[in-house]
Design a protein around this nucleic acid. Structure first.
Lengths: 361, 361
DNA sequence: ATCGTTTACGTAAACGATTACGGTGGAAAA
DNA sequence: TTTTCCACCGTAATCGTTTACGTAAACGAT
């Protein structure tokens, strides 16, 4: 008796068995005994099986109500081999765009009768692996993944995907895995932003480019280039600054440096709103007026951009839509697992331009 | 054969059985057969049971690795009668404070080996009930609840709590249920805010009070009153405006109205940052300078408040801490269910004053 | 050689729900 | 009266794990 709990190393010294002594949940057996019929009949009555008489169905329905019967989902799942739960791995929840996507996922999942398990991975590949394993161990039917900016986990997710586990990547999607993906069109977003600046008569448009590893750096850069080309503006490499952390602070610093050169740009297209906000305060400090002297556009529509002075022109992505689509695709994938036709969908959500004060002169 | 799927009304016409034909997951039985031993022995070997020889443990460990064995959590849960999952009901995810709390919950849960299921209830009592039922049906061990502002669901949650289901309320907590609660101290928050205004030499401090139904209206109002009293300022009822939706728009409107009266306040303590932001734009429109002529303080530290001009003094609540505490309490409660001593804890997280430009002269 | 004691494993009954298959009783048909 | 046929329900196996209990072999002690 001394060490009866050798096996509980995962849960500490607990005794869950005792919990049941407080209150046993009603089971099919309880109802069956009360009615003097078999468990099978009760089960079928509940499912409106055609070979069960209406009389019994009525009696069962009554007892289900009065005894507060709730099917034991573990038993059901064990029998049916699926759980109606999906998992979500996301780097950071506390972020307007992320939480909006989450909200979209949850709404769609609820609509389709699925529950959502959420893990936050941080920027850490190790954490991505641990969380994924934990989620799969709890028995999810499929997984939604937004990757962190490190590249170390792509192989891991690639293997999982290759094994046939239903997955959909969203927002930050992998480049090396051929799979379902839902993401915003960074290219057109950047194009719209740059085009907007050009149409407002800015000529020398700088681009604060994202980190080398980051997944939206290149498409946004390409969109920027495409706009320059379309309107026959000269592409000036020294106006493209590759950033490292893309924080507000770096936006400030980079702007300070860029604006104190001999030849300086008259507009800044920043890879995200954080940098744009930093840029705005640098410009304020340098007494450069926005938008008359210099125009600024960000990307992703942080709430703060609406309130800052001058308010920030930016690119808005519909997180709700991303969430909806991702959840919908995943659940479809779960249901279609058998006809594994290997045709993967890429849903590209088109972003829109939000014009505010920082860019229109 | 024609209508073989009469029972699938919840899932549509699906055939999950076929899924298994693609790939059967390794079970204890598979390992047992391969080694020519019993399932029980494999199970015990996995748990490092003392009565199993090291030789077998080694063999099992090898096969577990090579056959990619993962315990079927449904079977485990069914046997053990607990799932290591907790549920969260929250009115709105896309909100800085909410998502921060969520992040705290998820982090603590992960630390304690629990998974988190999240539902968004909106402002709707019906949705709260549906989501709760769904969560319980999927087999969570306990529930974290932040209530919406309607009062129709308190009874529902009260019953559930009375039945002995492990629950902890957080952030927006009920008044009529005696239970574990984790919340910020709205009273001291409001007191700090008002005191700060007083110390900065504002004399006629108005309060934009929250909705009548809202759960933090009264404590914040009380904190406001207490500060006035402590510093022997006259309480002027007409300077307390009861608001209805507490939006930015209402903040704007109420400020316009208040500031165009004969006797007008020289400071505004708003029940939340949204209203304070609305107030700031109204004051700007009225050409009333902040903070020299009028001081403004908000509540809850929205990100926008940092960037608006003038930047907004506010009260910050540690969402992470709320999340941590709530998850910790709930999981403790789950583990202690047997010694049901009916002693409920109230964790009051103390908020802090964030001083910015809108209030110091 | 006989009798405990260990050591090391197997047997089988759970957990709660599902469902193929096998009955039963009674009415209708022969 | 006997046969046939439904309508209706029960039996039992199954999903994958856990664990109380049983048991065989090995060992030392007498």
């Amino acid at each position: 008796m001394e060490n009866n709990f050798y096996y509980t190393k995962n849960y500490g010294i607990l005794n869950f068995e005792s919990v049941n002594m407080l209150k046993k949940r009603t089971t099919l057996k309880d109802i069956a005994e009360k009615l003097g019929i078999s468990v099978a009949t009760v089960s079928r009555a509940l499912k409106d099986h055609p070979e069960i008489s209406q009389r019994i169905k009525d009696h069962v329905a009554l007892l289900v109500e009065s005894m507060h019967y709730r099917p034991n989902s573990f038993a059901v799942h064990l029998k049916n081999q699926h759980s109606n739960m999906i998992g979500v791995i996301i780097p950071k929840i506390v972020h307007f765009h992320s939480s909006t996507i989450l909200s979209g996922i949850i709404a769609k999942a609820q609509e389709l009768n699925y529950q959502v398990l959420i893990c936050e991975s941080g920027k850490d590949a190790e954490s991505e692996r641990i969380n994924t394993t934990a989620l799969i161990n709890t028995g999810i039917d499929g997984l939604l993944v937004s990757l962190s900016n490190n590249n170390f986990s792509e192989d891991f997710f690639g293997e999982l995907h290759a094994e046939g586990f239903p997955m959909v990547f969203f927002d930050k999607v992998p480049t090396t895995i051929s799979s379902h993906k839902v993401l915003t069109n960074d290219y057109t977003g950047a194009f719209l932003a740059t085009e907007h600046l050009i149409k407002n008569n800015y000529q020398k448009i700088a681009h604060f480019k994202g980190q080398k590893g980051a997944r939206n750096t290149q498409p946004r850069f390409n969109g920027y280039l495409a706009a320059l080309e379309k309107y026959k503006l000269h592409y000036e490499p020294k106006f493209v600054i590759e950033c490292e952390k893309c924080t507000e602070e770096e936006g400030f610093n980079v702007t300070m440096a860029t604006m104190q050169q001999d030849e300086r740009p008259d507009a800044l297209f920043c890879v995200n709103d954080e940098m744009a906000i930093g840029a705005l305060s640098a410009l304020r400090k340098l007494n450069i007026e926005v938008p008359s002297q210099v125009g600024v556009v960000g990307f992703s529509d942080l709430t703060a951009g609406k309130y800052i002075t001058p308010s920030l022109t930016t690119i808005a992505q519909s997180g709700i839509e991303i969430g909806h689509k991702a959840a919908e695709l995943l659940i479809k994938e779960i249901h279609n697992k058998l006809k594994n036709d290997n045709v993967f969908q890429q849903h590209i959500i088109e972003p829109i331009l939000i014009i505010r004060d920082s860019s229109s002169r």
